[in-house]
Design a binder for these strands. Structure first.
Length: 971
RNA sequence: GCCCAGAUGGUGGAAUUGGUAGACACGAGGGACUUAAAAUCCCUUGGCCAGUGAUGGCCGUACGGGUUCGAUUCCCGUUCCGGGCACCA
């Protein structure tokens, strides 16, 4: 029988649906395992070969765990709300709901072809009311909670009200009450500087802005003060940091999150400043520093331009200069400020007093100090901070070195290593507090920091303080396609609509396009007001400010719906709760999460925050949502370019062009007979190797139909190629459907895994796929041979039951021999170990080798084939099912048992020589198992690898152990 | 600038965590079958040198050192590529 993958895959796809093979329920008798993929945005372009990479990897693991007896949850759904979905809808001029559902259907069709073990009965879509009801619910819970610093967890807001009342701080006025609580709620309305993107018509979260432009589309972003819903993510900074220690994620992604959270330990120190008259104390401000040890090197102070302190300290003489400077700073965009680091600043006219030395130091305003971090004010130590150094050089301010041997004539010495000096220069330069002076000379920097902190704390000059860089997440988007906020405004005070009225459904609008002014599209909805009597959405014209109120016009951002979806998969149809106690108790959290590392500072932080909040509420049962994380790499595409001679409709073969390096553009530019030729993308379907099919490209678009193609002397048109991200706009997309059509899903799965380590990015290259296809054919042929033979021997067995003489003969036919068992167990060991560490690319060669070896051994034993079919089932499920059935099994291969590896079959070819001498034990070279000790010893002495080593030493003992036991023996 | 991860044949990549470097696949070359092609199967394939040949020798895991009987693996330094953060005091 031939390997007919089309029929096989079609047949098993239908059977899996009919038999509900992949549906799971909470089964208390079995151990759970939760595998999850980051669910996709259903974008308009459909799936390309890069998308399934992670899904295949996790599917292999899910199937493997299932074969090991675990109850595996492996769900899939769609992240359907948010900017990308809406941008696509706008581009195609359709309603986002329509495009989203069309795209979802297309995704589903494509996914189904690849043979995933998803439990589709648990599918979620973030844009469905039954789903986003719980997104809104969680938001309301956040609104009604505050973060208790002492307990380090979320608490009901009522507790805080009680506390305020007890302390007599509870205002009578409703508006004041609301304002006070707003400063503590986890979801709060805040007047903050936001990243405003005029082109997208919305604000963006920090992680959605890259290099001063929007992540989506690359549009400019400016800073703007707006009233927005925010999530107090920063309150969870320490827990987000601590949690990283408990989870099994790659070091690089943990590092990225650590950077993003940006914890820094330091001290806040109170600085008195002189009043305008210059005589008495005008007030105090607080600075933050991580280098408390450098107090003796302070030569000036700097305030952030946005800081309120600037107004307070500025003297009348400097007022004009300061105002002008602030105006200049405000006129600069975020991008300008990021790129241009030239030194700017202005003197305020005021002086601060260094509390340690008593010195009077000038106070400056400069944009290099940020208002949003620390206290927005710093003490400047030019000798030991490069930014302060640049500033001091520019304004000709003194520089006092504090570390022995540090040369600060050319640059600052920023390292935290060395011995402190000049601290103080002389005793009277250190102010006396309660009879004690701070003296740091001779100490290491680390000791000096600790000593200064102690001194500052003890003499009440300030306090020890930990700062985090992590900012609160801005949660409002001036967009249509997102979850509506379940909020209405009663006389300007936000109110939650009652929980039992959720979900608050997204209204229909005529125009869903964003506006440049920031007026959200929901403002176009006629029916968008809340009636507190009927407790329903009513027409806006009915607003009476007594019982009917306007609803919030903003919608939630993309990450709202994706922050707790893994919990919903546990119990997707529950109308009573986000997830039931029972389901959450059983499934706990995600054991294996697979997705791209580009979500490191977005989704993966928000999700962890969201889960921690739900954990505080008792809804989620684990503090961390994703125990193990695997980041699959990107699959890149080979883009092809044809070259059009500028100003003509001539396209020239790449090998006929002259190349020149352009310094300004930092890339090659090309010329044909003196005229520059510009690269134009050509669809890769029209290219074989690097040769263009000219007839095809003429049919492609009108611009090529009339074009002239200048071929090389071989009569070929050569394209140039580049490896780039796979994208529709680069015409380098390879569609998985085509691969499935040509080779089948099993080959696609195998090949994607074979391409290289799962975590690495690599270009898609079809060349190697034949190897995988050939292997499956070989495996199929081997299996067919065994199945035929074993059926034959079963038949003989029946016919000859009475004939005892034949018994030994039959045993030979059905009992595997030593060689065959060795091949099998080598494979079991390799594949099992590989799957555990996601090194699938090395398991596939193991299958190839085993198949070849068994073919050479002319193996006919089903006792060998059966476990092999189970081993291959996670990788190539369709072929495995077909063979499993052919072997006479009535149940799915999914319900089989993962084979157990037995050392005894492998011992002989993994022996090593152990040499013990002079009380030490070392190991040496491999020897055949049947070599006796004398032979080994003789060989060891004569062996060229270790002659020097063994010279003059006495070999006390030669032990033969399996290779993998060596480390155990050595211990 | 700071932090993290890398660098192995023509290519993707192996090497059991210090023990025969280059598994497996692709590509290339040669051969078998075939009228022919496709398909399939077999052989060769890191470099250099010697030999008719079986074979033997030397050099080789970015570069330079070190530890070790032995280093792709561990340590130090350099170069290059990728990722993250980037006036965060």
């Amino acid at each position: 029988m031939e390997y007919n993958f089309r029929d096989i895959e079609k047949k098993w796809h239908q059977r899996w649906v009919a038999m509900q093979t992949y549906q799971v329920t909470e089964d208390e008798t079995r151990k759970k395992f939760y595998v999850l993929n980051m669910f996709p945005y259903p974008s308009g372009a459909g799936l390309h070969v890069g998308h399934p990479l992670g899904y295949i990897a996790s599917d292999i693991y899910a199937r493997y765990k299932r074969l090991q007896g675990f109850n595996v949850l492996n769900p899939m759904g769609y992240d359907a709300y948010g900017l990308p979905a809406e941008q696509y809808a706008i581009q195609t001029g359709q309603h986002p709901e329509k495009t989203t559902f069309d795209n979802i259907n297309r995704y589903r069709e494509q996914l189904d072809k690849i043979g995933f073990s998803f439990d589709w009965s648990r599918e979620v879509r973030t844009c469905e009311p039954g789903y986003y009801r719980w997104t809104q619910w969680a938001f309301q819970k956040m609104f009604n909670s505050y973060f208790d610093e002492e307990l380090q967890k979320a608490q009901p807001i009522e507790k805080l009200i009680e506390k305020f009342k007890a302390e007599g701080q509870w205002p009578a006025d409703e508006k004041e009450q609301s304002d006070l609580l707003m400063q503590h709620r986890i979801a709060y309305l805040g007047e903050t500087m936001v990243n405003w993107c005029p082109a997208l018509g919305t604000v963006l979260a920090n992680d959605e802005v890259v290099n001063g432009v929007s992540e989506r589309g690359g549009y400019p972003v400016e800073q703007k003060k707006m009233r927005q819903w925010c999530l107090r993510v920063s309150a969870y900074s320490q827990r987000l940091l601590d949690g990283l220690e408990t989870i099994d994620w790659s070091e690089s992604i943990k590092e990225t999150q650590k950077n993003w959270i940006g914890r820094s330990e330091g001290a806040e120190i109170e600085i008195p400043y002189l009043s305008a008259s210059g005589e008495e104390e005008g007030g105090r401000f607080t600075i933050f520093t991580t280098r408390a040890d450098t107090m003796f090197g302070v030569t000036f102070f700097v305030l952030a331009p946005e800081s309120e302190l600037v107004d307070q300290v500025t003297t009348p003489e400097q007022r004009v200069a300061v105002d002008e400077y602030i105006k200049y700073v405000k006129g600069r965009t975020e991008r300008e400020r990021m790129i241009d680091h030239t030194v700017t600043g202005v003197f305020t006219g005021a002086y601060g007093i260094n509390p340690i030395t008593g010195d009077k130091c000038p106070i400056y305003v400069a944009e290099y100090v940020l208002a949003g971090y620390g206290t927005g004010a710093i003490m400047a130590v030019p000798a030991h901070d490069s930014r302060d150094y640049a500033f001091a050089k520019h304004f000709d301010l003194p520089i006092i070195p504090l570390v022995e041997g540090a040369d600060v004539s050319q640059e600052s010495y920023d390292a935290k290593e060395g011995i402190v000096m000049n601290s103080p220069v002389s005793e009277e330069k250190s102010v006396l507090y309660d009879g004690e002076r701070l003296i740091l000379n001779g100490k290491t920097i680390k000791e000096a920091i600790a000593e200064t902190k102690r001194f500052v704390k003890e003499h009440k000059l300030g306090r020890v303080k930990v700062n985090y860089r992590l900012r609160d997440a801005i949660f409002s988007r001036q967009r249509y396609w997102g979850e509506p906020f379940p909020v209405y405004y009663k006389h300007g005070i936000p109110q939650m609509i009652p929980e039992e009225c959720l979900p608050l459904q997204l209204p229909e609008v005529d125009k869903f396009l964003p506006t440049a002014t920031g007026e959200p599209p929901l403002g176009n909805a006629t029916k968008w007001a809340w009636d507190t009597v009927s407790r329903s959405v009513v027409d806006c014209s009915a607003i009476d400010n007594e019982t009917i109120f306007p609803l919030e016009l903003n919608t939630m951002p993309g990450f709202a719906g994706s922050s707790a979806y893994y919990l919903r998969y546990m119990d997707p149809h529950n109308d009573e709760a986000l997830v039931s106690e029972k389901a959450a108790g059983y499934w706990q959290n995600v054991d294996l999460y697979v997705g791209g590392s580009e979500h490191a500072t977005g989704h993966l932080i928000y999700s962890r925050f969201w889960n921690k909040f739900l954990f505080d509420l008792g809804v989620s049962k684990k503090e961390e949502p994703f125990q193990k994380l695997i980041n699959q790499g990107m699959i890149q595409g080979w883009s092809s370019f044809v070259y059009r001679v500028r100003g003509t409709n001539k396209f020239v073969s790449f090998d006929l062009l002259e190349e020149q390096y352009d310094d300004a553009k930092k890339k090659n530019i090309y010329f044909y007979e003196g005229t520059e030729a510009d690269p134009v993308y050509a669809d890769i379907s029209m290219v074989t190797g690097n040769v263009l099919n000219v007839d095809k490209i003429r049919e492609w678009t009108p611009e090529f139909r009339e074009a002239e193609f200048i071929l090389n002397q071989n009569g070929q048109y050569i394209v140039s190629q580049a490896i780039e991200k796979m994208s529709k706009s680069k015409y380098n997309v390879v569609n998985p459907d085509d691969i499935c059509e040509h080779y089948g899903a099993d080959t696609l799965r195998l090949y994607e895994m074979f391409l290289g380590p799962i975590e690495q990015s690599k270009p898609w290259d079809v060349a190697g796929i034949d190897g995988c296809f050939r292997f499956l054919k070989k495996f199929w042929n081997l299996a067919q041979g065994i199945i035929e033979q074993s059926n034959l021997s079963d038949l003989n067995n029946l016919n000859n039951q009475s004939n005892l003489n034949n018994q030994s003969n039959l045993n030979n036919l059905s009992t595997p021999n030593k060689e065959e068992l060795k091949v099998l167990h080598k494979l079991i060991k390799k594949v099992t170990e590989d799957i555990e560490v996601f090194s699938y690319n090395t398991s596939i060669p193991a299958f190839m080798i085993a198949t070849n070896e068994l073919s050479q051994l002319k193996c006919t034993k089903r006792a060998i084939l059966e476990p092999m079919v189970v081993l291959i089932a996670p990788f190539a499920p369709h072929i495995a099912e077909e063979l499993w059935e052919a072997l006479g099994h009535k149940t799915s291969v999914c319900d089989a048992q993962w084979p157990v590896f037995e050392e005894k079959y492998l011992v002989e070819d993994t022996v090593k020589m152990m040499v013990a001498f002079n009380g030490k034990t070392r190991f040496g070279i491999d020897f055949p198992a049947d070599a006796d000790n004398a032979t080994i010893e003789a060989a060891a002495r004569g062996h060229e690898m270790t002659p020097k080593y063994l010279e003059g030493k006495q070999i006390v003992k030669v032990i033969i152990v399996p290779k993998r036991m060596i480390n155990l023996v050595l211990k």
